[in-house]
Write a protein that binds this DNA or RNA. Structure first.
Lengths: 356, 356
DNA sequence: TTGTAAGCGTTATCAA
DNA sequence: TTGATAACGCTTACAA
C-alpha cells in the first residue's frame, strides 16, 4: 500500500422513514404507506402531498423492512457454476445478465449474482437462499441432461425459470417440471446443415461443448437426425465433445484433420473454439474455406476479426435474457408452468464457408 | 410457446424460524439467538443442543429480518455502466466478479450486480441503494479522471472501494478521497516500452481505450514520460484513443498504417483491439512482427489463437477482484482509507513482437 | 377518509 | 444462565 489516511467516516446521514414523512405531512404512517403504494384509502389531495414530502426527503422504502413485512425480497438470483475457465471469454453471460436486468430493474427488482465452483455448491446455495428468503426466484442456466436442480427447486417451492431449455418437450408430453425459455437448437442445426450440405459438404464434424449440457445433447441429436434424413454417412457426419476451451477446440481440430478422411466442414459450439480451429487450419496451411469450411455457433467480435471472417449462428442473447426475465416475472405473478420459445437464431454467412 | 401446464404451485414448505427452534429445544428465542450467533449468555450444553436442532430444521437466518434488526444488508453492490458493447467481449468483468465472490461468499455476503446505461444512472442507483439500505458497501469500477462518484459516495456515507485506482496518489499527497485498489499502469507501460525500445523500435503508438477513464490517462501519461526519458520523438511515440471496440481498434490501425511514417509497433489497450489490429496487418500483407510488432494489454485465449500469438501484458484479474473485496471488507470493519497496490502485471513475450 | 395496532423474524436490553 | 420485551421500518387489518 502506498498512501493511507484516517478513517474519514462521515456521520452516515440518517435515512428518512415513513414516520418522518408522516410527521412532516401531518398524517399517520399507514396513510403514508397507502399513498406511496398507490392503494385506495387516502384522498387524492393527501396522496399528492405525501408524495411530495417523500420526494423532498428522498425517501426510498427500506428494502429489508419491506421484504420482512411483504414476504418478498424484490430480488432474484442467478448462479454461475464454475465460469472461470468455461465461461470467461464468452460474451454470453454478460449479455444475458444485461437483458435480464433491463426487465427487472424496471420493476425495482435487484439481481443477486453468485459464482460457485460446481453444481453441488449451486444446489446448496439455492437451499440457503430459500431458507434466508434472500430471493423471490431464480434463473437456472446451463441445464443438463441429468439435472438435480428442477427437482430441488420444485421441492423447495422456489420459483424458477430454466434458461436454455431442458430436454425439448414433445407437443403432447407432460408439462415441463420447471418453466423454461428455450432456443430451438434442432432447427438451428438443421439450418447450418442446409447451408453446408447445399455447398456440397458430405464430411461434416460438429465440435461440441460439454456433453453433460442439455443443449449440447440437443445439437448432437439434431445433427444425427439431419444427417440421416439426408442419407449422409453417420461416420462422416458426427459430433465430438470438448470443454469449450480454445485448447480443446484446437486439439479436436488437429485430431480431425489428421484422420484419413478429414472433414471438409467443422461446426464449433462457440466462437472461441471456432477461432482456435481457424488458427489450426492456418498453421497447417489449409485454406479456409476451400480446404475447410468453418461455422461458429454464436457470433461475437472474434468471428469478425479473423481472416476470413467466420460464418456464424447469430442470436440475440440480451433478448433471450429479457425473455427469461419476463417469464420469471410471469411465474412470480402466479402464471402457469410453460415452455416459451426464443427467437430462432439466423445464420450469418461470411467468408469461412464455401464449396469444398 | 409450445407446451403449457398448470401452475404446479407446491405448498411452499414453511421455513423454520428461531421460534420453531426455541419451541423444539424448550428454550427462549433470545437463547437461540445467542447460541446461534456465538455470543456468551448461554451454557455450552444448551448451545450445542440448540445448534443441533437448528441443523435438523435446516434453519438459516431470514436475511431481511437480520438486516432490519442488525442494520446491515450482508450484501455489497457492483454497478456496470453500459457494458453491452464496451465490456461484452472482455473477460475482465466475469473474472473480477469471480474473485470478488471468492472473498465475500466465504463471509455469507451476497453480491448485487446491476447493469445501467450510463454514469448518471449509476449515481442514481447508489442513492437508491443507500436509501433502501440494500447494500453495505459498493465496489466502484472504471474510475474516471473527472469522476462524480467519490464525492457522491462520500456524502452519502456509503462505504466504497474504487477498483482500478483514481489518479495515482503521490507519496506525500493528501489521502485519496476513497479507498482504492490500483494497478501500477505506469510501471507496466514502462515495462512494455523497455521491451519494444530494446528491440529497436522508435515509432511506437498506443491505441488506448476510452479517454475519460483514469487508467487510460495514466497509461498515456506514462507513455509520454517514458518516451521523453529515452529521448524519443513524441510525435512518433504517442497515444490515440478509442472506445475499446474491435471496429475502432481496426480503424485506428488502418489510419496509423496509412501515415507517411507508420509505427513499427502498436500497443493495444485490450485483447479485442489487438486481435483486430493483427487482422488489419494480415489483410494488408504486413508481416507480424517484422513489419509490425503488436502488444496486447491484458491476456486472454484470443491472444493465443492468432498467428503469431500475441505478446501480452498478463495480469491476474481474479486476484485483483479478491484484493478489492478484501479492502472493502476492511473498510466495512472500520479500517482506514488507503490505496492498496495490486500485483504488477508481467509481460508475456510471444511471437508478435520482434525487431523492426 | 383517516388513525391505531398487530405482525414479519431478528437482535439486544433488561430483569429475574 | 435464562426469559420477557422492545426495537428495526414497513404493510395491512380493523376501528374510529
Amino acid at each position: 500500500m502506498t498512501a493511507s489516511g484516517e478513517a474519514a467516516r462521515r456521520p452516515p446521514a440518517r435515512r428518512p422513514t415513513i414516520k418522518d414523512i408522516a410527521r412532516r405531512a401531518g398524517v399517520s404512517e399507514s396513510a403514508v404507506s397507502f399513498a406511496l403504494n398507490g392503494r385506495p384509502g387516502v384522498s387524492d389531495r393527501t396522496r399528492t402531498r405525501i408524495r411530495r414530502v417523500a420526494q423532498e426527503l428522498g425517501w426510498q422504502a427500506n428494502s429489508a423492512a419491506r421484504a420482512l413485512s411483504g414476504d418478498r425480497a424484490d430480488c432474484i438470483g442467478l448462479v454461475l457454476a464454475r465460469p472461470a475457465r468455461t465461461l470467461g471469454v464468452e460474451s454470453f453471460f454478460l449479455q444475458l445478465v444485461s437483458g435480464i436486468q433491463e426487465v427487472f430493474s424496471a420493476h425495482r427488482t435487484a439481481l443477486l449474482l453468485q459464482v460457485v465452483p460446481d453444481l453441488a455448491a449451486e444446489c446448496a446455495l439455492y437451499r440457503r437462499w430459500w431458507a434466508e428468503r434472500r430471493v423471490d426466484g431464480v434463473l437456472v442456466v446451463n441445464p443438463r441432461t441429468e439435472d438435480p436442480r428442477p427437482r430441488l427447486l420444485g421441492s423447495l417451492g422456489l420459483p424458477a425459470v430454466v434458461v436454455g431449455g431442458l430436454a425439448t418437450p414433445g407437443p403432447d408430453s407432460a408439462p415441463p417440471p420447471l418453466p423454461t425459455v428455450w432456443a430451438d437448437d434442432a432447427k438451428a442445426m438443421a439450418r447450418i446443415l442446409d447451408h453446408l450440405h447445399g455447398l456440397g459438404h458430405r464430411r461434416i464434424v460438429h465440435v461440441a461443448g460439454l456433453p453433460e449440457l442439455a443443449h449440447t445433447a440437443r445439437r448432437i441429436r439434431s445433427l444425427r437426425s439431419e444427417a440421416a434424413r439426408r442419407g449422409l454417412d453417420t461416420r462422416q457426419v458426427r459430433s465430438v465433445t470438448t470443454d469449450y476451451s480454445d485448447a480443446e477446440g484446437a486439439e479436436a481440430t488437429r485430431r480431425l484433420l489428421d484422420t484419413a478422411e478429414p472433414p471438409t466442414a467443422i461446426i464449433y459450439d462457440n466462437d472461441v473454439m471456432a477461432v482456435a480451429g481457424a488458427s489450426v487450419a492456418a498453421e497447417r496451411g489449409i485454406p479456409v474455406p476451400r480446404g475447410l469450411s468453418i461455422v461458429a455457433w454464436d457470433d461475437s467480435p472474434l468471428c469478425r476479426v479473423t481472416h476470413p471472417r467466420l460464418t456464424a449462428l447469430v442470436r440475440d442473447t440480451a433478448a433471450f435474457g429479457r425473455l427469461a426475465a419476463q417469464e420469471l416475472r410471469a411465474v412470480l405473478d402466479g402464471g402457469p408452468v410453460r415452455a416459451v420459445q426464443g427467437e430462432l437464431p439466423h445464420l450469418e454467412e461470411r467468408e469461412s464457408t464455401g464449396a469444398p
